[in-house]
Design a protein around this nucleic acid. Sequence first.
DNA 1: GTCTATACACAGATAGAC
DNA 2: GTCTATCTGTGTATAGAC
Lengths: 194, 194
Amino acid sequence: MMNTKKSTHQNIMDTAQKLIQRKGFNAFSYADIAKELDIKTSSIHYYFPSKTDLGLELMKRYRKTIQEVLEQVDQSELGSREKLQEYLQAYQSIFSEDGRICLCVMLSSDIITLEDSIQQEVKLFLQLNLDWLAKTLEEGVKCNAFNCHADTHAEASLFLSTLIGSMLLARANPKSLSFHQIGQVLYDKYTLHD
Amino acid sequence: MMNTKKSTHQNIMDTAQKLIQRKGFNAFSYADIAKELDIKTSSIHYYFPSKTDLGLELMKRYRKTIQEVLEQVDQSELGSREKLQEYLQAYQSIFSEDGRICLCVMLSSDIITLEDSIQQEVKLFLQLNLDWLAKTLEEGVKCNAFNCHADTHAEASLFLSTLIGSMLLARANPKSLSFHQIGQVLYDKYTLHD
DNA sequence: GTCTATACACAGATAGAC
DNA sequence: GTCTATCTGTGTATAGAC
């Protein structure tokens, strides 16, 4: 019989990620995790000696996850538009009604207070997204799939900015469009011709 | 002779705003302000009994500032495109190379950890921006100034999202386009026709 | 108004028993 | 591995002298 119980290590990472996605890196504490998992803070230090260690491992896992998603999409037979749709879908599954937004967005806003190792990991994650977006837009522009400027590098920055900002805006001001709706409008802008 | 010395009250607000724009609401402390102004933390409590009081006053002042800018732009004889340009310019003057980004963006990312009074003030600020953008886009669409969808409410959310996200992206990943450049691409997208 | 002194809670982190 | 116990620093905040 398969052991379905998650390891303490994994429980800590999952709980920490959820807390950062809600409160931010500087606002969550080891005590928060300990309380939620009914363990002691010293047990967390056993797995993650410092808070930076924990944050760093979280970002690395997070990057691997998106990396795998992007590779799977690239290996598929999907068209450029469908690839972009899948990309948006990946972020929409991260965004949660309980206030969770993209881990990397939260760390980006705390970026100045983070140790260099985490800063580098955040940069890597963002660059990974930018490169994939530029490549995918480039590919789509060639076969006329996208209503988009030829400078795909610039377009990628614009696209990612919109995605990042829409999570913050939708959470902070429920009267604006929802994150899902903004994603839809964004997608339409790139696929519908006048 | 005019007394050019700023009041302690104002010094505290200016320093606190700068610190939040860099580090975020939860990462800055009264001790940070005290150190920078060479005063004691108890002096800060004299003007702002609690950290929430300070944050709230800052957001109120910040909102008034943008409100005045928007009113001045509205009272001018500028066309819709120039109005949008002025709007972007206002945010570009906030963004600073030393890591400062929009106060409201920083508070938006910490939104869940803030007391309700500040949350409301953040919402007000965002809604003020959305309403002005929707109105201005609406006005421009009528005279064919903007290359933009008829649903100006949705377009406003999209536009503001891009602005918010580009500050975070540009600061966290210097390899992406700069905030200024993203603003330019954004403006072009709305004003240039294919 | 600004200071000294201090209270109190909580943060991240470590040593060592079990 | 997980715990108890503890250390040390820092956080917000207050009382009261000057």
